[in-house]
Design a protein around this nucleic acid. Structure first.
Lengths: 227, 227
DNA sequence: TTGAATTAAAAAATCGATTTTGTTGAGATG
DNA sequence: CATCTCAACAAAATCGATTTTTTAATTCAA
């Protein structure tokens, strides 16, 4: 983790927000589940006020739904919505990629290379899923970082989080995963050579391929795991 | 207002959220201003908990900034950001327009016509600014409503709110306003005839023109007005 | 037996008070 | 004279209790 230089310990509400956000993306809660607030309070060992503030933020972000006078629930997962998310993600990321290639300087190139290196390292430890997930997110972030549009990056991040919520539920597919990994390397090369056309096509393919994997999320009986 | 059939009175936090959202977009607070929470509490006559929940939602939505341990502040207004917002808005709305034209049925056509009619009616009462603003927002919403992408519409709405925050601060320009109004009518015609190419060009122009007006937000000494 | 009405239990939303943290300015120190 | 320290203050964040609303269970009448 590159962030938080010990000087800035943040509020309880921010901590619980991050924790809940990750748990929602990781699929720790069932889709459509109604969240029992006092149960969350006990489980995460936080007070009611910070917890409710975090829930409100998550609802505004789209990772929870707030129903009038009856609390919060985890959004349902529907293939139709996944298709929407993936399609829009492809369009927005291709848009950002073009701008990133046009505006990117050598500092950007370095960051992309560095992020890719960390991703490959994370690949070597398949047991540390969360490390890989973080490195993967950061690689895609680095690739588009120089696009110059704060709001575009913001929306892409939001879509990525939504997308991952589906993808993480889908059964892994080693063959496809290998192809996806290869594409990461190819994206780096195309970034360095500033081949916009080829890179757009590749990124579009990349998201499409990942999308096809994520679509498996609604089949398997969600074999649970981990900590 | 078409919503809320008396049966569903919503929570204090939702009410204060809507009120604050509107006040932020209308420019009732100075850009960069730090919000004094207890002052807000007194002014809006609400408790601390619902108020804080509303502030958290607004921060997640992008209409406020939350600073670590020192409360909330109104985001600064920068021309650079306005350009970002307007540019992205143009791209996303043109994207949505294309899809809306392809998927729109006769019900959609009716809604567009109806929304346009209300907008023209609102035009006749220049003193009721808020009525016009609402009708205007709803017209643009209706035009894209049939695009089929929940998330695209969501982002467009968010950008529209951000854009209006700048536009509302800019001095009015009756000549340009007239041109913009004319474009609304032309958009309706192009929608009915499904002329995607022309409509895209027109919508792009429309946003660009509105953008040029909004850019005046940083010059004038913000002569205040209304209620 | 069904179904509307009542009420008891549970959960969410809100309030008022407390704790924690950041800010300011007076006085001490170099 | 500038800078540092520390107390007093102000503001934000959090807690625990109360109020409001929903949900479920149960009763009573048709």
């Amino acid at each position: 983790m590159t962030a938080s230089p010990s000087t800035s310990r943040d509020m309880a509400s921010s901590r619980i927000f991050e924790t809940l956000k990750q748990d929602l993306i990781r699929g720790r809660f069932a889709a459509g589940e109604k969240l029992a607030i006092s149960a969350l309070k006990d489980h995460y060992r936080v007070g009611l006020s910070p917890l409710r503030e975090a829930l409100n933020r998550l609802a505004a972000y789209g990772l929870l739904e707030q129903v009038n006078q009856r609390g919060f629930r985890v959004p349902a997962m529907e293939l139709e919505e996944l298709d929407d998310i993936a399609g829009l993600r492809a369009q927005l990321e291709c848009m950002a990629l073009t701008q990133a290639f046009q505006a990117g300087d050598s500092e950007w190139e370095s960051q992309v290379l560095a992020a890719h290196h960390r991703l490959r390292r994370a690949d070597e430890h398949p047991e540390q899923v969360e490390e890989w997930e973080q490195a993967h997110l950061r690689f895609h972030r680095a690739l588009l970082a120089s696009c110059g549009s704060h709001w575009l990056l913001r929306f892409i991040e939001q879509l990525h989080d939504q997308f991952d919520r589906y993808r993480r539920l889908a059964p892994p597919n080693p063959a496809v995963r290998k192809a996806l990994d290869r594409q990461h390397g190819e994206l780096v090369e195309l970034a360095l050579s500033r081949d916009i056309r080829a890179a757009r096509a590749l990124l579009d393919d990349h998201i499409r391929l990942s999308h096809s994997v994520a679509r498996g999320c609604c089949e398997s009986p969600a074999s649970d795991d981990d900590t």
